[in-house]
């Protein structure tokens, strides 16, 4: 019963959208290592190339990031560039602080992936560059799943 309701609600949400449901799929990206705990999920419309209902969760584990930028969401760490075409998926998130209390602090997270033939997932790398208490430059592996 619960599964039926979930399916009905999901179907209703898609019907309520003005976009063709057939062209909409889900996307989930994740990074979990010693530097970073990050996730990004969204619905993606292939026709108009729009992300819908996007959700971002960022937590820097590596030291040096400005305390106010250690934990961020989609509002404080917006997606500034994206490319999701063919076998490529690239995402860039950027946040900047500059006010009376903070001279300057920034976080840039760049994810670049390609479809892996074996798994079908988008597999690649991330680069995190932050100007906070220190200059932080770390890289690692990133994976996104589209469905």
């Amino acid at each position: 019963m619960k599964r039926t309701c979930t399916a009905l609600l999901g179907g209703a949400a898609l019907l309520a959208s003005s976009l063709p449901a057939s062209a909409t799929g889900g996307l989930d990206c994740g990074i979990k290592d010693a530097n970073l705990n990050f996730s990004f999920s969204a619905l993606f419309n292939r026709g108009s190339s729009q992300f819908l209902d996007a959700s971002t969760s960022f937590e820097a584990l590596v030291p040096g990031v400005h305390p106010r930028q250690v934990k961020m969401d989609g509002e404080t760490l917006p997606l500034t560039q994206k490319w999701y075409e063919g076998d490529e998926l690239k995402l860039q998130f950027y946040s900047e602080l500059q006010n009376e209390e903070v001279d300057f602090a920034s976080v840039k997270l760049t994810i670049q992936t390609k479809i892996d033939d074996d798994s079908g997932d988008h597999v690649g790398t991330y680069a995190l560059v932050a100007h906070g208490e220190d200059l932080v430059e770390v890289t690692g592996e990133a994976r996104c799943i589209a469905g």
Partner: peptide, 28 residues
């Protein structure tokens, strides 16, 4: 401009427009 990737040596742009006016059929 629905998608862009302007970094390093790469320039990738996607421009998209579809019909929106009342009574217009869907086209893009």
């Amino acid at each position: 401009l629905r998608q862009q990737w302007f970094r390093g040596e790469d320039l990738k742009l996607m421009l998209y427009r579809e019909t929106v006016a009342d009574g217009e059929p869907h086209a893009s």
